[in-house]
């Protein structure tokens, strides 16, 4: 999977490394900004009220 991505990135090794880094950072950003805030309320830490509003 990662080998496949690497082979399909353009440029020489340095450019590939740079693009990979950007891709990784973008993934982490999307996770922290959109995926985790959605997933976190599914965990029990939010239930602090007695009427479950």
């Amino acid at each position: 999977m990662y080998g496949f991505i690497w082979r399909h990135l353009p440029g020489n090794t340095w450019i590939k490394a740079l693009i990979s880094l950007v891709l990784v950072l973008a993934t982490v950003y999307v996770l922290f900004q959109y995926v985790f805030p959605w997933a976190e309320p599914l965990l029990p830490f939010n239930d602090v009220t007695v009427d479950n509003q």
Binding site: L31, F32, F36, A39
Partner: peptide, 11 residues
């Protein structure tokens, strides 16, 4: 691991 970091630290 990233999710744990998010819950424990980032929130």
């Amino acid at each position: 691991v990233l999710f744990v970091v998010y819950v424990l630290f980032w929130t």
